[in-house]
Design a protein around this nucleic acid. Structure first.
Lengths: 340, 340
DNA sequence: CTGAAAGCGCTTACAG
DNA sequence: CTGAAAGCGCTTACAG
């Protein structure tokens, strides 16, 4: 075991051709005769030759590595997305290399350096908490960046999000249509585009319907903050519906409410955002806005690869529509009208 | 933007030293004078130089990349472990590159090739479903492999697991001690070491206590299979306790039971395995055996790095003890004895 | 301690 | 279509 790897030179010698010929056989689009291809392939297979990706990367300037920057994987939406990204990129001949950063941009400097060190061909920033500097500096370095599930003002950055504003508005319409009248919001982190946009769309939707937003608290995308916020809201304004900025927090809210006397959905309807797998588990049975993870990933991969192949590609901002998935935590009828 | 990266040659010229001198400054342990170090460091910082990892890897034979092979990330234990592995390895100067494989070894051939292509320095196989061939062939290629949370007969392979047999036995003791008498098991996949060992330890514990294992069904680590199994068990043997092979399945069992008349823990105690984050959520409040993920990761990383640094290191099998975490789904007292 | 040189395993003009 | 050669950006003996 541990015998030296076979190189293109080994194959060349064995096949009686030049080393460059071997290289061409493994370079799509290079000009080689069918005879050479056949001869080389046969020997390569016999010897178990495979091109060394590192060497290839060194000369071609392409590492076939995509850096995926994530923060906490606690919210199930992210591991799921990472898995999909990995599979999709794998199908295109790329691999993902994971860079974990702490919440608020600690260690971001190192991550940027590391990203450059590994000569990644592209970067997917898949976490809400990332500081703007990280993404901007990567773009500065000339590496294509796509923001996944987060927006940013910077025009050079491509991004893929769901239609968060519209989603928030849809939730408002849905709740109002269900006869809810005392409506509150535990928002996503308002410092993030997703949290902000959903909250804005939601407020808009309510005001169009002529209903007040009884109270809104920033849940910061954290379970404990969200749970406390919900309790505070219940105490103060006695709502008949709460829209929670994502499923991850909504589960915490559901849990917190279970401890009090109020019943979901009879007393209070709860709506989340994301439609992660767990939302459909009977324990939660959560009405939520689906973020079409699969389509978001497909779009992200497509954009990133296009930009890698042509760095002149202009940045694009893609928004993918999601729809409300109605489940038990907020049934369509709204329990025939508001209570009281 | 997109200006050519600065190379060691650039730094050498600017600093008035040879290129090898620059290289030495960035090679820990190389012999360079303090004066050279200072001079080169200053210029390097000014120019923003960082060694190209690919080039370094090509000549040194070290890519500083660790391949992490996972299957489905649905069970929260795995994304959590991946995150920990990523952080721990990052601290040691390594990065992880993710390889996702489908359940039963489809695409395993490609994964092996890709692992070799990228010249990974080591491999962590972090998924129960991986076929033995994958791991064995990697070991054949001379790449250090550590199995994370799975066992295998092959003596050349290092592995880190929790003390699954003991854990199963502990659960038996715990349930018996709580006065439960009609005890059943929805096992983890019996084709895996974790599933098998836990089941065996459990059966052993019961038989030592002189109690029968009323019924056992293989839950295959799948939610739907586990839920159906639990229902079948309830129907057939009216158990007062079910040990479920991991938390991921236990959540499904809890969900399924909620639909029937039986109450947890009064009628039936439920115990899981893993202690993933969600186990402590009020919705589940699951008594379970903790798999000390942090210590398992630390041990995995340490072993892997040791083997990378010295390929002659013998393979080791590490087992880390976990303890029962008692929560509402199976309280310690067992509701003062069995019912009926 | 330091520089010149070889070489890691490839790709890619350059001639032919 | 094909080979010889240069070069990608480093590390590492080899002399000094």
């Amino acid at each position: 075991m541990n015998e030296r790897r076979v190189t293109s030179q080994d194959v060349a010698t064995a096949a009686g051709v030049s080393q460059s010929a071997v290289s061409r056989v493994f370079t799509p689009g290079a000009s080689v005769s069918a005879a050479t291809v056949a001869k080389v392939r046969a020997v390569a297979d016999r010897l178990g030759y495979r091109p060394n990706v590192l060497a290839r990367g060194l000369v071609s300037g392409r590492s076939r590595l995509i850096g995926v920057v994530v923060a906490y994987l606690e919210n199930q939406f992210y591991p799921d997305a990472v898995e999909r990204l990995s599979r999709a990129l794998q199908a295109e001949g790329y691999r993902i290399i994971i860079f974990t950063v702490m919440g608020r941009g600690e260690g971001v400097g190192e991550v940027i350096e590391a990203l450059l060190d590994y000569q990644v061909d592209g970067i997917i920033a898949a976490s809400v908490g990332l500081s703007d500097t990280l993404t901007r500096r990567c773009a500065d370095a000339g590496i294509p960046v796509v923001l996944f599930n987060r927006g940013q003002i910077d025009q050079r950055l491509s991004q893929v999000t769901s239609a968060n504003r519209q989603g928030g508005q849809d939730v408002a319409d849905f709740l109002v249509g269900g006869g809810r009248k005392r409506i509150a919001h535990v928002s996503g982190w308002l410092g993030s585009s997703t949290g902000f946009d959903r909250a804005e769309g939601f407020a808009d939707g309510l005001s169009k319907a002529g209903l007040p937003l009884m109270k809104q608290i920033d849940g910061k995308y954290q379970r404990d903050v969200a749970a406390a916020a919900a309790l505070e809201i219940v105490e103060e304004v006695r709502p008949d519906a709460i829209f929670v900025g994502n499923d991850h927090m909504a589960f915490a809210v559901l849990d917190a409410l279970r401890g009090t006397g109020v019943s979901v959905p009879d007393d209070i309807a709860i709506v989340g955002y994301d439609d992660v797998t767990m939302a459909s588990w009977p324990s939660f049975d959560l009405t939520t806005v689906r973020q079409p993870s699969g389509r978001m990933v497909a779009s992200t991969v497509e954009m990133l690869i296009r930009q890698i192949d042509d760095h002149a590609q202009p940045a694009k901002k893609v928004e993918i529509a999601g729809e409300i998935v109605v489940r038990g935590s907020a049934p369509a009828g709204g329990g025939d009208g508001a209570r009281v």
